[in-house]
Design a protein around this nucleic acid. Structure first.
Lengths: 323, 323
DNA sequence: CTGTTAGCGCCTTCAA
DNA sequence: TTGAAGGCGCTAACAG
């Protein structure tokens, strides 16, 4: 490239890196260099540049199961968009939850001199980050390590819980609120926080929770739990399902017992996944803002002086499951 | 690192790259070097190595919407696993279907000297690959460009269609088969191929298709289409839904009309997504083998002499929706 | 305003 | 069996 335009590599470098102005390079020289670059289809080798500048414009992403086809992979989409906007690229490694693989991938990313690292979990949880992760230039996405000074990005679950309660209050519900689902995963954040928000807001309005049905966050279990409740004579005025799969199971159980939504029972859910829109009627769901979280995480990792924690708003997704 | 062990960089390089044997290096020297490397936590800089060897052990992945929380992102998981096994890493870029972004990302990947490129689409289709993609070292995943010599990996949809038909034949269905859904996307492969397989196999058994209900591949549309069919007096013996979302809509419509599954109507579907397992009863679904496809694609891109096309089997996922 | 020089960290010829 | 030297493609000092 250097000689192709009949100039030195330096000049070319300046021009191609947009520092022609700053270096006050002659207009025709610039013209000539650009033309030459164009004609020979010159493309800088980012590896060589990285070697020199020790900056790769790449962000490493280490996930447990995020890429595996779950709704949660929207975090990747958001991160990708933000990375693209910042002229960076994502290097992704999925661990399947295997600590050995995790170690391996962290080393791998570090060897590649990524500019930053995102540690992402499918489910929001408290955990211990791999020791190898550098304290700076790492961001925990959808998880948090209380013992580390690593910034984390989480959904604002408590506020989300309050929002769900508010939806019911706005609809005039004053009793008979049944919560379905108790987070079964140890160290999980979502369940307890949502419940806290729900009961907190209801309590402020002088409304109590009639029952909490304990079940895994699956369609089958939710169906079974709600069915059992109804069979035992329970007649809830409203169901708060801790995620959309639970809502689906609840819908099935209500249908089985001939109860209509929202006529007989109002239903509010969490996640705001596609599934929420597939139910009949569409369920009101407090959205997990995965894309925004991914975006935010990339912003943090690129920020030399990031805040230590970011809570992302959970907007209420409209539906027809509440009168 | 060189001096840390009191040897030259050459020796260290040989040892750390496992060519100690071949170079017949003294045992104690090797020992000493390894110890030194360990103690100072030496890690080779992959960028520097790439510069020298012009091989990055990275595979670029360019997708339209694959990472966006769809079921299809399982292709990424499969690719990731295979890449890991081959000691490679995935560099992922999502385009949102924007051709300008696509161009940008292809250049980006090329500049980074990835060893191979995967071009992935959420929906299987015929398309024109970006001209910038090199003919070798590129693999089309879930898509194909008939004008290019680029290897492609696709699900074997026709065989899948035949498998679906076989399920019904095995259950003794001999008439009243209604197909729900006609692929609305131009250049889409799945719809026509599945239909071809279904009608082909049925025809061999002397069974005709009673009707094909035209609708988008969404829950709402499927509900509407099946409802309309039933309202018009249609009484199918079996429904073949071209994907799981359609099956969900069909379930809702059948329930509305008081028809039971599989008692009144048998249902077979395609995709084998999680949704299939959430329906009551679980729907028999011909699985889109996304993970296997991703794995296979990585194998192809690493293969110096790959086959030009790979069709991956679509296994039938069991369910209780067929008598 | 532009060219020369040096070196990022690694690997590979070539000598010793 | 090991060391010294050169260069991958690029950019940051430093001259001129």
């Amino acid at each position: 490239m250097a000689q192709a335009a009949g100039v030195s590599a330096t000049t070319a470098s300046y021009i191609l890196n947009g520092r022609a102005q700053q270096m006050r390079i002659a207009g025709d020289t610039e013209e000539r260099v650009r033309a030459a670059a164009e004609s020979i289809g010159y493309r800088p080798d980012r590896n060589a540049r990285s070697l020199r500048t020790s900056s790769t414009a790449a962000i490493g992403v280490i996930t447990d199961y995020v890429a595996s086809g779950m709704f949660s992979s929207r975090m990747l989409a958001g991160a990708n968009a933000a990375a693209l906007a910042a002229d960076h690229v994502l290097v992704i490694g999925e661990t399947d939850g295997d600590p050995r693989v995790t170690q391996l991938l962290v080393s791998e990313m570090l060897d590649r001199r990524v500019d930053g690292l995102l540690f992402v979990t499918r489910t929001s949880l408290r955990l211990t980050l791999p020791a190898e992760l550098p304290d700076d230039r790492t961001v925990a996405l959808n998880c948090v390590d209380d013992a580390r000074a690593v910034p984390s990005v989480l959904p604002d679950e408590v506020a989300g819980g309050r929002a769900a309660a508010q939806v019911l209050l706005d609809a005039g519900v004053r009793a008979g609120v049944v919560v379905v689902g108790v987070d079964p995963t140890p160290n999980a954040i979502a369940g307890p926080a949502r419940l806290e928000g729900i009961s907190g807001r209801l309590a402020e309005a002088g409304v109590g929770i009639a029952a909490v049905l304990d079940c895994d966050w699956t369609v089958d279990q939710a169906f079974a739990a709600v069915s059992a409740h109804l069979a035992a004579g329970g007649r809830p005025r409203a169901l708060v399902c801790l995620n959309d799969r639970i809502a689906m199971g609840a819908y099935q159980a209500l249908a089985e017992f001939g109860l209509t939504i929202p006529g007989d029972v109002a239903v509010v859910s969490f996640d705001g996944s596609e599934l929420a829109g597939w139910l009949r009627p569409k369920v009101v769901s407090v959205e997990l803002p995965f894309a925004a979280m991914g975006r935010r995480a990339v912003e943090l990792v690129l920020d030399p002086d990031p805040p230590s924690q970011v809570l992302v708003d959970m907007p209420v997704q409209a539906g027809a499951s509440v009168s």
